[in-house]
Amino acid sequence: MIEVNQLTKKFGRKKVLDGVSFTANKGEITCLIGINGVGKTTTLKAIMGLTSFSKGSILIDGQKINKNMYEKVAFIPDAITMLPQMTIKQAMQFMQDFYQNWNQERATELLTFFKLDEKSRISELSKGNTAKINLLMGLAIDVDYILMDEPFSGIDIFSREQIADVFASHLIEDRGVIITTHEINDIEHLIDKVILLDNGIVLKEFNTEQMRQEEGKSVVDVMREVYQG
């Protein structure tokens, strides 16, 4: 379980996160939704130890982030994290060199799943394929948790579908997933839990199936209520 507790982060005087608390379970897909602001990405970066914060705590299975956590949690940012001159094959080799938990079999499977050629250069990939390679680099490490920042933003519909398909497949297995997004059309059926953020605070946290069963509301219904009053 990833526990975010009273997370507070300031940029200058502005509070980007103001006491954000939530949990994300293993085996579940948790979606951090925010209409505007940078709070979502900052939260993921804070979990990964890629930004400092002024208050609060973050625990991953009871532990603070440390170097060994990077074998346990993968972060997939909205920018590609490999060198442009590398081929996909070289990029995978780099990962294999540094991560004990790198699973080449799964990497190959993902390449096939995404219909990508390992001889392609990173710099030649389309935005959609870039997102897929990012996802591959995260999923092919045998991590327990995967954090994805805006995996669907700015990419073509077919790439979006393929990425959404991954969430329904055995490739995710029983890992915990946290996704940030500002639109959820592609994944509404797939997510277990929703956290609605706005101006650095959590407005609402709910389980999607429970919400449908008990109140007959879709995620978008709840978003409309919460954000538009």
Partner: peptide
């Protein structure tokens, strides 16, 4: 459950349920 989740494009937890 896995196959169902993949073909129906739903969460494996949902298929399980």
């Amino acid at each position: 459950r896995r196959e169902l989740a993949a073909t129906m494009k739903i969460n494996p937890n949902t298929a399980q349920k």
